[in-house]
Write a protein that binds this DNA or RNA. Structure first.
Length: 261
DNA sequence: ATGGTTGGCTTCCAA
């Protein structure tokens, strides 16, 4: 693995609906690994053969109707984990695996619904347990990548209109603190290593012409462990796919790493 | 403009 290693995350909002788009995107971008979220497909219905024919290995952790994550990889994957340890949960939101010396944590963080809901309490509990888990993972695997739909915009500059979003889920101080606590373990928001501009979004509401107006949020992230920072050479958002017919409301984030040994 | 859109085995819920 001495050449470039290209990693991407994409909340596809139903893998079945987006299957042609995912296959087309793999062909045009040729990532080594694509982590997807909101597959909404049970494991027995996962389209393994389609990806195999396209030259990819797959791991999946899905359920009916909601949630679900999967890893689509050029290289074989090992040591799969499909649950957050010490957290009683029926929702399929995490998939962890090794590719060579890389440890990859693919997550779909709970949305949280609204600040006064039970779902918000569940989101904060989930993030707290994720932090405990990532601390253990980092001690075992220095080359750690945590990527997925975090459902948190880290700063106001990741929000199209912070005034409108004041007091709403995805931007609250509690959620941002939970993300900060995770970063403090020794992880960095890869996108911000290369781009400090505002208005760089990964999600736009389907409603009210939000994409056309660029009314979005940056809530999908690729975190790189400190050991990987020198090797991370690009991190970009692929806005193009939001212009496709029947797009997901999220777009891919792509990072490249060099000299992974 | 307090609306609007998408996916899912649905007549509403989640995002």
């Amino acid at each position: 693995m001495n050449e470039l290693f290209k990693v991407a995350t994409w909340n596809v909002n139903s893998l079945r609906v987006r299957l042609e788009q995912v296959l087309a995107w793999l062909t045009s971008h040729q990532p080594h690994l694509l982590a997807v979220q909101e597959t909404k497909v049970e494991n027995q219905h996962f389209p393994v053969e389609l990806f195999k024919r396209a030259g990819y290995h797959v791991l999946y952790n899905g359920q009916k109707t909601y949630n679900g994550v999967a890893c689509i990889s050029r290289l074989p994957m090992q040591n799969e984990v499909t649950f957050l340890p010490d957290f009683d949960d029926t929702q399929r939101r995490i998939l962890v695996t090794n590719i060579g010396t890389l440890r990859i944590v693919n997550i779909y963080v709970p949305n949280g619904s609204s600040l006064d809901s039970e779902k918000f309490i569940y989101k904060l509990r989930w993030l707290k347990q994720l932090k405990i888990y990532l601390q253990q993972e980092l001690s075992l695997h220095p080359n750690l990548i945590v990527l997925g739909d975090f459902n948190i915009a880290p700063e106001d500059k990741d929000v199209h209109d912070p005034q409108i979003w004041q007091g709403k889920v995805l931007v609250s101080p509690e959620e941002r603190q939970a993300l900060s606590d995770i970063l403090a373990l020794g992880l960095k928001d890869s996108f911000r290593l290369f781009n400090n501009e505002p208005h760089q979004y990964t999600w736009w509401d389907y409603r009210a012409g939000a994409f056309r107006r660029n009314h979005g949020l940056r809530i999908d992230h690729i975190l790189s462990s400190n050991a990987l920072i020198p090797q991370c050479i690009t991190c970009e958002i692929d806005k193009e796919v939001r212009l496709w017919e029947k797009p997901s409301d999220h777009v891919p984030v792509i990072a490249t790493y060099q000299n992974i040994s």
